[in-house]
């Protein structure tokens, strides 16, 4: 399909415009053509920026899953033009644009892995094990350091950890404070240090066996 015919699926938003709001139901997803899009989520009493996306990037793709509620908001950071995918035009666009299809395939692969990993976390029987496993997941994502030191530093917050663990912020805070009290982790302003990742790994696998 030529570029011209793609134009009929393009939508524009002014700077600051809301593309979608967290928790609304949606069945469309987007490819950025021009401008940048800010992904935000209200966590606690703060609207937190999760990501800033550039032209060529896709977002809202979880909408292909039966009209699920949006997990975050998307706001136009500049005047933006987006390609809007719907159930109806989806195949038509992808058939003519293999690069887009390829990009979507990569994104789906990543999401499948993330969801599988989250499932493993949620199957754990208690909140401490879940929190520990979130750190293992983050460790897998950032890859082993060269020197294989057992200490790991994560750019994350207790709220994010709680979200991944499928527990409330308060539960997350309690579990993290208890780990900190046992000197297993250290919580700094914008990062969390796990002193011995292998320790967490042993703990999680013993809990996983106990839960099975």
């Amino acid at each position: 399909m030529s570029k011209l015919s793609l134009d009929r699926f393009a939508v524009s938003y002014p700077k600051g415009g809301m593309i979608f709001c967290e928790s609304e139901h949606g069945d469309t997803f987007y490819l950025i053509q021009h401008g940048r899009v800010q992904i935000t989520k209200i966590i606690g009493a703060i609207e937190k920026t999760l990501d800033v996306l550039n032209p060529g990037e896709l977002f809202g793709e979880m909408a292909i899953l039966e009209n699920a509620p949006r997990s975050a908001s998307a706001i136009a950071l500049d005047a933006v033009t987006l390609l809007e995918f719907t159930k109806q035009n989806f195949e038509l666009i992808l058939e003519g644009n293999p690069e887009i299809a390829l990009r979507l395939m990569k994104l789906f692969s990543k999401r499948i892995y993330d969801q599988r990993r989250r499932f493993m976390i949620l199957r754990l029987p208690n909140i401490h094990a879940r929190v520990a496993d979130v750190f293992l997941m983050l460790d897998e994502a950032q890859g082993r350091p060269e020197d294989d030191d057992k200490s790991r530093t994560f750019q994350t917050t207790p709220e994010d950890v709680a979200h991944w663990a499928g527990i409330s912020k308060e539960e997350g805070r309690i579990a993290i404070n208890q780990f900190a009290k046992q000197r297993k982790i250290e919580v700094l302003r914008d990062k969390i240090i796990v002193h011995n990742i292998h320790d967490f790994s042993r703990y999680v696998s013993s809990q996983r066996k106990a839960g099975a």
């Binding site: 979880m62 292909i64 899953l65 039966e66 699920a68 195949e91 992808l94 058939e95 003519g96 293999p98 690069e99 299809a101 390829l102 979507l104 395939m105 789906f108 692969s109 999401r111 499948i112 969801q115 599988r116 989250r118 499932f119 949620l122």
Partner: peptide
Amino acid sequence: IMKKNAKLMLRMLKVFSTQLRDVHSKV
């Protein structure tokens, strides 16, 4: 290879999206 085989890619994409839907509903 994929860029030259849009149909094949679309088929794979469908497999992926089924897998994603499946694991997502389990979560």
